[in-house]
Nucleic acid binder design. Structure first.
Length: 507
RNA sequence: GAUCCGGUAGCUCAGUCGGUAGAGCAUUUGACUUUUAAUCAAAGGGUCCCGGGUUCGAGCCCCGGCCGGAUCACCA
């Protein structure tokens, strides 16, 4: 592959460094006793602190002015300016370290270790007066150079999504705000996990490779196990396994994990995504709504510092209680039509009236879902529980205790998007078998996403599952809300991309 | 999968009517001991995404493809 001019220069510099007897990739570590952010926040000239510091990072800018230079060092916490004076670095006759190594052979992007002391420059910027530096890793590729002026205005921003996502490492280096998004994502999971642990619920792991892709309605990825010579599916959900654990006697289990769905990709969908599923015995969906309110309020506070979060043009209040509307109430509120008594034909006519396309494979549940998706969802900006779904849409939820034809289910909508789904779980094995059979009928009618029947799961229910409430939260979408990002790609380190065109390479 | 928009130097982008390929940053050389989008002087750097076509001549027009984004469809 042909190297660019800058890559050639860097490789030549590398060679010269080696000729000077310097290892460009030394094996030993470097003492890091402080980070950039700590110095910037805590240095006070009067206190004379940070006078023997040792840190490491990447050179992000260099301003050489003859016998002295400024550089910008970036570590995980931020950027700090270095001041390098020739005669301080090279007290003796030999000025090679400064004149040759620092001025000529180091490049932007090189990783160096630095020892020195904090001070303030004439213009008042906290900086490090370098007494010693060492090359820790030579960079052979030029980074995009993003400049910022005093007001923080960005020039030549590195924004091309294709490059940013394919080379996320570069994105993380030159766009510090990107790192903050992922720190928040990590904090979100950590915060939620701590909340569950405090309640004594057990974090578990269940199979990703499943012989039957149950627990949700979606097209799976299919693979094959050679030794067993059987097809296996990457899980589209883990619900049925977690319930088996409730049958087994755990009273609260949860799992953060990747799910895989062989569907389209867009701003809110990636083929693999992270969900959190939790099942708690002896609870129902009413209890679960309270738990969700408490959990999200706390998570929001711990991740963003506030229960109120800016998302696009909206301010979302995560402190409960959240508005509750039944599915029928919600549809009536936003269309003026009461569909609660309608049969499949009447619903089909209603769809027509509302200019919603239908097809013959759609059952009653699907038709209601269409109306809801088309006319209601977009209006649910503040956190809203939509409750009591038609039974046809929800084969794993328990029938409503008082409303015929409905199940005890809620979904939480925020900013017009579903972020959580929960049931009073169906634990009646006879009813569950019938529901699966209904799904089979839908499948025969052409519904590709109807749920598969899982005999072993039914066997587990037949042993008896305590009354249980279960909840699933889309972690990526929650992360999008809490970091004010409008694309799922921005909250995944490595979003799925088509493979790059393979470049011709010499063997 | 459909429609629209985009792909030009390492990066961000201009490129007029189809007529020698442009800028800023980065890079190279030189100057400079408190600069900070450092500055000053000079220089080098291009498979214009790929493949066809039209034309005397294509970065530009036409056809096909690849990759990305947006919107829609499907889905969470």
């Amino acid at each position: 592959m042909a190297l660019s001019e800058q890559e050639i220069v860097r490789r030549e510099n590398l060679k010269k460094i080696i000729e000077l007897g310097i290892d460009p990739y030394p094996p030993e570590g470097w003492e890091v006793n402080v980070h950039a952010k700590e110095i910037l926040e805590q240095y006070e000239p009067d206190k004379n602190n940070f006078q023997e510091i040792s840190l490491a990072g990447r050179i992000m800018a260099r301003r050489i002015m003859g016998k002295a230079s400024f550089a910008v060092l970036q570590d995980e916490t931020g950027r700090i300016q270095l001041y390098i004076n020739r005669d301080e670095i090279c007290p003796g006759e030999d000025k090679i370290l400064y004149n040759v190594l620092f001025k000529k052979l180091l490049d932007l992007g090189d990783i160096i270790g630095v020892k020195g002391r904090a001070f303030k420059t004439k213009t008042g910027e906290t900086s490090i007066r370098v007494s010693e530096f060492k090359l820790l890793s030579k960079s052979l590729r030029p980074l995009p150079v993003v400049k910022r002026d005093e007001e923080g205005k960005v020039y030549d921003a590195f924004t091309d999504p294709e490059l940013r996502f394919r080379q996320r490492y570069v994105d993380l280096i030159v766009n510090p705000e990107v790192r903050e998004i992922f720190k928040k994502r990590s904090k979100l999971i950590q915060s939620m996990r701590r909340y569950f642990d405090e309640h004594g619920w057990l974090e578990v792991e269940t199979p990703i490779l499943q012989p039957i892709h149950g627990g949700a309605a979606a097209r799976p990825f299919k693979t094959h196990h050679n030794t067993l010579d059987i097809p296996l599916y990457l899980r589209i959900a883990n619900e049925l396994y977690l319930k088996r654990l409730i049958v087994g006697g755990f009273e609260g289990v949860y799992e953060f994990g990747k799910m895989f769905r062989n569907e389209g990709m867009d701003r809110t969908h990636n083929p693999e995504f992270t969900s959190m599923e939790i099942y708690v015995a002896y609870k129902d969906y009413n209890w679960m709504m309270g738990m969700v309110e408490e959990c999200l309020e706390r998570v929001s506070k711990e991740v963003t510092g506030n229960t109120e979060v800016q998302v696009g043009d909206q301010r979302i209040q995560f402190a409960g209680p959240y508005e509750k509307l039944s599915m029928y109430e919600a549809i009536e509120k936003y269309t003026g039509i009461d569909i609660s008594q309608m049969d499949e034909e009447a619903l089909r006519q209603t769809c027509k009236k509302l200019h919603i396309e239908t097809d013959p494979s759609m059952g009653k549940g699907k038709l209601i879902d269409e109306i809801f998706g088309e006319k209601v969802e977009q209006h649910l900006i503040q956190p809203t529980f939509i409750t009591d779904y038609p039974i046809e849409m929800t084969p794993l939820a328990k029938k409503h205790r008082s409303k015929d034809g409905l199940v005890e289910r809620f979904e939480l909508f925020v900013n017009g998007k579903e972020i959580a789904n929960a049931y009073t779980e169906l634990n009646d094995p006879i009813d569950q078998r019938q529901r699966f059979e209904e799904q089979l009928k839908l499948a025969n009618r052409g519904d590709e996403e109807a749920m598969a029947l899982d005999e072993d799961f039914l066997r587990a229910l037949e042993y008896g599952m305590p009354p249980t409430s279960g909840l699933g939260i889309g972690i990526d979408r929650l992360a999008m809300l809490l970091t004010n990002q409008h694309s799922i790609q921005e909250v995944l380190f490595f979003p799925q991309m088509k493979p790059e065109a393979t470049k011709k390479e010499e063997a």
